[in-house]
Design a protein around this nucleic acid. Structure first.
Lengths: 273, 273
DNA sequence: ATTAAAATAAAACATACATTCCAAAAATTG
DNA sequence: CAATTTTTGGAATGTATGTTTTATTTTAAT
């Protein structure tokens, strides 16, 4: 491997790495990925520690550093340490940093919006954590683990959650159908539901009739129903075997999905164990 | 000097230092002052470097550490490093939660999992807020606002994001096609893309060929491309007009989608104004 | 002022470390 | 397929580092 260039800042280094990634050998690419992924791991660790964590030979790290113009690994490491120090010093200021809404041109408007959403969603997640009943979770997990096949139904706004859940479950080898209604076959797909299966429905206000219909089908078969909804007043609640009421973040009357996504993900992965 | 006590956090150490300051010898007081004043300097420096900077003898540092119950200077130093990691890159590291408690009964296990996910996701959202470039956001917004029609493409794990984005955009009266590949018509749907449109692709590792193909189609037409991905090494990055690299929460090597969802939501809603 | 005790600095020590060297393996080229 | 170059991993090397020991200085007590 030949020397690539000389860099003096971490940002420069990162862009050099990404730019020349394809030119690197297999092992050096491995290091490159690790470096980009774990910048703070680099700052403190020793060569052997980092090498072990990145599953490469220690000398590869030195070769990597040399390839990017450093005299050695320690030389490169200094860059990561410097960055960490800089961030730390600004940390105290950052937590106090409150947005003053006054001077906002169009440019930071979107950025501001992002701030609001991420913050609101973050709060929603914390709220979620404290307001989901452990017994409900366990009951849901039991139902799912006993089910021969799981059917997931949600439309419109809730649909992304259903598709994600179906993806997750299939990836941990749990039989799962996504009742997606492709080709307008909502009714037809309901026939797939059998007694010893389980049905998961996600339904937010305004509660769609397609979802209601799926619930009715499940009731008729005697199949257990797990419901994710946004209000204890949801018309589906009384029919559900287990019901989770999730408060989602709301900004300018736009509701998020992140809390439900998170909940659904946790439940799915708990089945993997 | 006799051993004072055993401390396990930097806050503890600091209060121990101030409390026992008068009991310390002259040189140890000198070290104490230095330690309280330059915590960051301790984290990285070597004994000789720090000693020189504090104008004390290296061995004094070891004796100082011993006085506060550490086995040696390096032992004490770890405390400063840990603090630096937590502070400076606070989220980045906490996004990846490692499992520690082995003794969990099955019931709270799921609940615990939810805790971890919501926490990790919450951190990921905070990290997102600070690491998305406002200029990139604005550029993306401009591209979308000028586009005649927006095409959204994502498969497998990223698909829920695409479906959510398509839902949102259509609900604020922005023309948007979801290239969902229903009926295996990935290729055919690419023909919908025209020059004065815009293409949004979401692609995470391992980068699917279907998404790559859509990008190729957009390039051929000269249509601007907005990319959401998980690594600067993404093969799609070089072709994208705007690229957002999002760090998602990770628990037990399961990656979330919430950060990207949040980002996508913000962008979409910024178009409504 | 003298002696004992404590603190400090210098030197010696051992070890952990980054780095280099070399041989084996893999990839590339003719 | 052979030859050559490149890459890789293991061992060797020398240095930097933390720590301990010992001698010296300072401080305190009688």
């Amino acid at each position: 491997m030949t020397k690539i260039t000389t860099v003096s800042s971490l940002e420069e280094l990162n862009s050099e790495i990404t730019q020349n990634f394809s030119k690197l050998s297999k092992r050096l690419q491995q290091v490159a990925e690790y470096v980009l992924e774990n910048p703070n791991g680099i700052a403190f660790g020793t060569v052997v520690m980092i090498a072990k964590d990145a599953t490469v030979h220690p000398s590869t790290l030195i070769r990597f550093a040399n390839a990017f113009g450093f005299t050695g690994f320690s030389d490169m490491q200094k860059l990561f340490q410097k960055k960490l120090l800089q961030e730390s010093s600004s940390y105290e200021d950052r937590i106090k940093l409150v947005q003053d809404d006054a001077n906002l041109d169009q440019k930071n408007a979107t950025s501001k919006l992002l701030d609001q959403f991420s913050q609101a969603n973050s709060h929603a997640l914390n709220y979620l954590k404290d307001n989901i009943n452990a017994d409900d979770l366990e009951q849901a997990r039991m139902i799912l683990s006993k089910a021969d096949t799981i059917h997931v139904k949600a439309v419109r706004r809730s649909f992304p959650i259903a598709s994600y859940l179906a993806y997750l479950l299939n990836h941990i080898n749990v039989r799962c159908y996504l009742l997606d209604g492709v080709g307008g076959m909502h009714k037809e797909q309901e026939h797939l539901i059998r007694k010893n299966d389980a049905v998961i429905v996600i339904s937010f206000h305004p509660y769609a009739s397609e979802t209601q219909s799926t619930v009715d089908a499940a009731i008729a078969k005697g199949t257990p129903i797990i419901l994710f909804t946004d209000s204890p007043l949801s018309p589906l609640k009384e029919h559900a075997t287990v019901c989770f009421t999730v408060k989602e973040a709301e900004v300018y009357s736009f509701r998020s999905l992140t809390a439900t996504m998170c909940l659904v993900q946790s439940l799915a992965i708990s089945l993997a164990h």
